[in-house]
């Protein structure tokens, strides 16, 4: 089945926007990464595809994500953004194509192995340890990062370095005052903040944020967005951000890729992608009219 189906509008190159290569379009639509870029490419997907029965949810997406860059992944609902994330982080096995992290093929690795190699992810639907405390949730992440999970004869509390680091992360997301609360007692907004805190605590090379401010109040969202902006300053990392809010994307993104019907439809600097008529009409609909 062709992505987008017969009635889907096909993007045409416009301005500086690089329209993505389609499986039937050879390599012409996507520039191969230069040698210089390769040295800084942290994450790459090459022809990444997943099929569910006859439905192609992600269709041969080839994309490289460079260090020091924040890439926003946009597209209408059902475009395959979260599925693309799931393929990268290993929650779903790819039907075809490959994922490489810092040059290593990680396509067949488990979720945990990918994480241990530097791939960190925050989830769209809050995914925490509900009966543990806020501090314990973050401690667990740092403990995993420090490879201390198999310590049997010391008490968890005796690892004061881990606790201190966890408290520092909670301070950054302004959850320090809720450190002792059970996660199930937190408001939705605070649970979202904790979700982000856990990703920050992991200190990965690749940050993957899936709608980090979804459901947050106008007072709470800036805390998370400021943190993501702060992470951008680290030139050793790359950030992938699935987001619907165009003002957020315009503020944070260095680059936008557009997914439509699972295929890569556009890839380029935010201003150019947003200004692209074809992207606005075909892939953003009314969403970009507000920009």
């Amino acid at each position: 089945m062709s992505p987008g189906g017969a009635n889907s509008p096909r993007p045409r190159p416009q301005g500086g926007v690089r329209l993505a290569a389609r499986p039937d379009a050879g390599a012409a639509g996507h520039d191969p990464p230069t040698e210089a870029a390769l040295t800084t490419t942290l994450l790459a997907t090459d022809g990444l595809t997943v099929r569910f029965g006859g439905h192609v949810a992600v269709d041969a997406v080839t994309c490289a994500f460079r260090a020091g860059e924040l890439t926003a992944i946009v597209g209408p609902n059902g475009a395959g953004k979260t599925t693309y994330f799931n393929l990268i982080s290993g929650q779903i096995a790819a039907s075809a194509g490959r994922v490489s992290l810092m040059g290593e093929d990680i396509t067949r690795l488990s979720v945990a192995e990918r994480c241990r190699r530097g791939l960190g992810r925050a989830f769209q639907l809050t995914n925490l340890f509900p009966d543990l405390t806020v501090l314990e949730n973050v401690r667990l992440v740092i403990q995993a990062r420090e490879r201390k999970g198999f310590g049997l004869l010391s008490t968890a509390a005796s690892h004061s370095g881990i606790t201190t680091a966890a408290e520092a992360v909670l301070d950054r997301v302004r959850l320090a005052d809720r450190a002792g609360s059970k996660v199930s007692e937190l408001s939705h907004g605070n649970q979202r903040k904790l979700e982000v805190a856990m990703l920050i605590a992991l200190d990965p090379r690749v940050y993957m944020f899936d709608e980090p401010t979804a459901g947050m109040s106008v007072d709470e969202a800036p805390v998370v967005l400021d943190l993501i902006a702060e992470l951008k300053h680290d030139s050793d990392r790359t950030i992938l951000l699935v987001e619907h809010k165009m003002d957020v994307i315009r503020t944070l993104a260095d680059r936008i890729i557009v997914l439509h019907n699972g295929a890569l439809a556009a890839d380029g600097p935010p201003a150019e992608v947003m200004a692209s008529d074809v992207v606005q009409e075909a892939y953003m609909g009314k969403a970009l009219e507000d920009v």
């Binding site: 982080s89 929650q91 488990s110 979720v111 945990a112 192995e113 994480c115 241990r116 992810r121 989830f123 995914n127 925490l128 340890f129 667990l140 992440v141 995993a144 990062r145 999970g149 856990m198 992991l202």
Partner: peptide
């Protein structure tokens, strides 16, 4: 699911 996602086998 989340334990695996933060790196625990």
């Amino acid at each position: 699911f989340r334990a695996e996602a933060i790196g625990y086998r």
